[in-house]
Simulated scan of single mutants.
Amino acid sequence: MKTVWVEGATGKAGKRVTAALAAAGLAVRAASRHPGVPTANVTPVPFDWADESTWAGSVAGADALFLKGLDVLDDAASVIARLIATAPRAEHVVLMSAFGVDKAPAAAPRARVEQAVRESGRNWTILRPNWLMQNFDEDDAVYARAIRDDDELYAGSGTHRAAFVDTRDVADAAVAVLTTDGHHRRGYDLTGPRSLTFAEVAETLSAASGRAIRHVDADLETHRAHFARSGRPDAWVEHMMELFAFVRADVFDGVTGDVRRLTGHAPRSLEDYARSACSCP
């Protein structure tokens, strides 16, 4: 049985990748700082990017690695290169990067991470999802707390659009590239079926939840203050501000067919997501 090590296995994407791989019959080493209890085909293992003493034991026995990368570390590329080197048995590295990174300057942190994976000496596949729908109900620091507590979707985006993708489709894509041939040295851009404004997102969430959720098109100062209230580090706040600058530059506006190409099914719509999230959040 093929063994896949999944980083961030308790997060929005990681927990769904873990579940999908296990359901497909693969053995999963589910890595996180706070590993849970074993389930069918899933072995939780401790892992902390900040503690290299956890790395070797965590990746031991893995035939493939699923990495999410490090968004706010300047030296993320070298850190990820060291981790891959710690897993000599792993022949395939799948990186969950982000939509548009392949068009970013070569010196950009995420572009350097992609380059480190390509230069790792292993077979590699890069998945580049657009904005994740599950941010709306699962990530308090980004959107979920303001939606839950104040019926507000904070996004300084104007009328610019993003082709939001469901993490379940990211998980299905991960299963495809790890269980079928033809995906080595390839990158895939994962999107939902339509590109939407944040005002349209608020309307969809309102219809699904029965609440009047409004889009707050915040100016830069207000938006930065909103993210700062999350308690996350300043580097994360600036990272989010940079992402919204990309939104306003229409970086996330494109729709691709890669979810269908990889999985054989159409990508889930925002309406599909909102119905499954029910009260959202």
Rank of each mutant, 00 (worst) to 15 (best):
M1H: 13
K2C: 04
E7G: 12
G8P: 04
A9S: 13
G11C: 08
K12G: 06
G14N: 05
V17H: 05
T18Q: 08
A19I: 05
A23S: 13
A24D: 08
V28Q: 09
S32V: 00
R33D: 11
N41M: 09
T43L: 13
D51W: 06
S58C: 12
G61R: 13
D63A: 10
L65F: 07
L65R: 04
L65I: 10
K68W: 06
K68T: 06
G69K: 10
V72C: 08
L73R: 15
D75T: 14
A76C: 08
A76S: 15
A76G: 14
S78E: 15
V79C: 12
I80A: 11
A81W: 06
R82Y: 10
A85G: 13
T86A: 15
A87F: 04
E91C: 03
A98C: 03
F99N: 01
V101D: 01
D102C: 05
D102Q: 10
A108C: 08
R110Y: 07
E114D: 15
Q115I: 06
Q115M: 07
V117D: 01
R118L: 11
T125Q: 05
L127N: 00
R128E: 01
N130I: 00
W131T: 04
M133Y: 00
Q134E: 12
N135G: 07
F136C: 01
E138S: 14
D139W: 02
D139F: 00
R145V: 00
A146S: 15
A146T: 05
I147Q: 01
D151C: 12
A155C: 15
A155G: 15
S157Y: 12
S157R: 14
H160L: 11
V170R: 00
A171K: 00
A173T: 03
D181L: 12
G182W: 15
Y188C: 09
Y188V: 07
D189L: 07
T191V: 07
P193D: 00
S195A: 13
L196E: 00
A199T: 06
A199C: 11
E200W: 02
T204L: 00
A207H: 03
A208K: 10
R211W: 09
R211G: 03
I213R: 09
A218Q: 11
D219Y: 12
R224L: 12
R229G: 09
R229P: 04
S230K: 01
S230L: 01
S230N: 03
D234A: 13
M241N: 11
F244E: 00
A245G: 15
F246C: 08
V247M: 05
D253S: 13
T256E: 05
G257T: 11
G257C: 05
D258F: 03
R260N: 02
R260G: 04
L262I: 08
L262F: 10
P267E: 02
S269Y: 00
L270H: 06
E271D: 13
Y273C: 00
A274Y: 01
S279R: 12
C280H: 04
